[in-house]
Amino acid sequence: MASQRIFQLGLRRAMAPRLTKLQPAGRMIQRRLAATEHVGQSEGQEILAKQRLQRPVSPHLSIYRPQITWYASSLHRITGVVLSGGLYLFGIAYLAAPTLGWHLETPSLVGAVAAWPVWAKVSAKLFVAFPFFFHSLNGIRHLTWDLGWGFKNKTVIQTGWAAVGLTVASALYYTFLA
């Protein structure tokens, strides 16, 4: 800041003789275009509050029409967190199982899940299938965008709804028929 100020003063002193012929060389011309006055802190806060009332309000998401890209982007992140979080939790539990005396090997898990009621099995499969298929299909959509394909508004909307439709169809298929 100080170096900038010194530079500005040097420029003003160098240009001062050229600006007016009436001023002797080396004298600095200083013009104050705005009147200033000292105000107290409380009075300054009042002035600032009045200025804030006059400022324009920036637009918020609530004034825009929702689009499939918003929902797909949010769901893509949420499903990624759900899937990776579940994987990390199971991985940590699997590593801690011998110390804690848990049986997380495949035969034990298959036996435990086989004892569940049908509604619990279907719910668990849906809870895993929907995030998995949506994240996978929307991830393919994002990969095509990385290649530079499908950036037209119509294509983006079509691929968004296609990802949702294929997610529902594939998740229901693998939940009930596979």
Rank of each mutant, 00 (worst) to 15 (best):
V57R: 11
A171F: 03
P131Q: 00
S42R: 13
R27N: 11
L75P: 09
A162L: 10
L126S: 01
L11A: 11
G10P: 02
V39S: 04
S108Q: 01
I29H: 08
A14I: 09
V39I: 05
F176S: 09
L100I: 01
V156S: 15
Y174D: 10
A169D: 03
G40M: 00
L19S: 14
S108V: 03
A93D: 01
S62E: 03
R32F: 03
L83C: 07
S84P: 00
S84K: 08
Q41Y: 13
I140K: 00
R27G: 11
A115D: 13
H142Q: 05
K154N: 12
F90K: 02
H76D: 02
L87S: 12
K125R: 07
Q8F: 12
K125D: 07
K125H: 09
H103K: 01
V57H: 10
A16E: 00
M28L: 15
V57M: 09
Y173R: 06
K21F: 13
R31L: 15
A169L: 05
A178G: 15
H135W: 07
P24V: 09
I157T: 13
G40A: 01
R13L: 15
F132D: 08
F127D: 07
L83H: 08
S84D: 06
G165R: 08
A120V: 05
I29W: 02
